[in-house]
């Protein structure tokens, strides 16, 4: 057991004690905190499956060592996107558009888009495509994902 580190995850204060302070945030979230939103896809920052928000910014948790987080920074995962039980507009829109096949990439798609909409609630289609250009989907769900982001944007 290493030195305890305090974090704010989905609005809760948590303390973890990884053996190695350079453990990527992804493994802490998934294995210590048993969260299922952030997913392991490449560990290289190339696919986006592991995306979480740190202080509202979309961040790749697979390449973010725990030690890089500053005290007081707020981590939000897919599980924490809903507010008091109401799904985030993007989550509702993804269901409406049936925007998943396997769904493994969807965490990244929603987290990346949520950060986009927070900054730019009415993005053009080109802006959505650009914002998601670094997020990979192998099932070919892209068109539905884009429609879901547009639907969510329209509801904002």
């Amino acid at each position: 057991m290493g030195k305890p580190i305090s974090l704010s995850v989905n609005g809760r204060a948590v303390t973890v004690s990884p053996d190695d302070p350079d453990t990527p945030l992804l493994y802490v979230l998934r294995n210590e905190l048993e969260l299922r939103g952030p997913r392991f896809g490449c560990g290289l920052g190339q696919c986006g499956a592991c995306t979480v928000h740190v202080d509202g910014q979309a961040v790749r948790s697979c390449t973010t060592p725990l030690s890089a987080l500053q005290p007081g920074q707020k981590v939000v995962t897919l599980e924490g996107l809903a507010t008091s039980g109401t799904p985030h507009p993007l989550q509702a829109a993804f269901v409406e558009e049936q925007a998943a096949q396997c769904g493994y990439c969807i965490n990244g798609m929603i987290m990346q888009s949520a950060a986009l909409l927070a900054q730019n609630p009415k993005p053009s289609r080109a802006e959505i495509l650009q914002a998601l250009a670094g997020n990979l989907c192998r099932c070919g769900t892209h068109l539905r994902i884009v429609r879901a982001v547009e639907r969510a944007s329209a509801s904002l």
Binding site: R36, E79, A82, Q91, F94, V95, G103, Y104, I106
Partner: peptide, 11 residues
């Protein structure tokens, strides 16, 4: 899909 978009689905 509802479970998958909520981060509840256990893969």
């Amino acid at each position: 899909i509802p479970e998958k978009i909520a981060g509840r689905f256990a893969y």
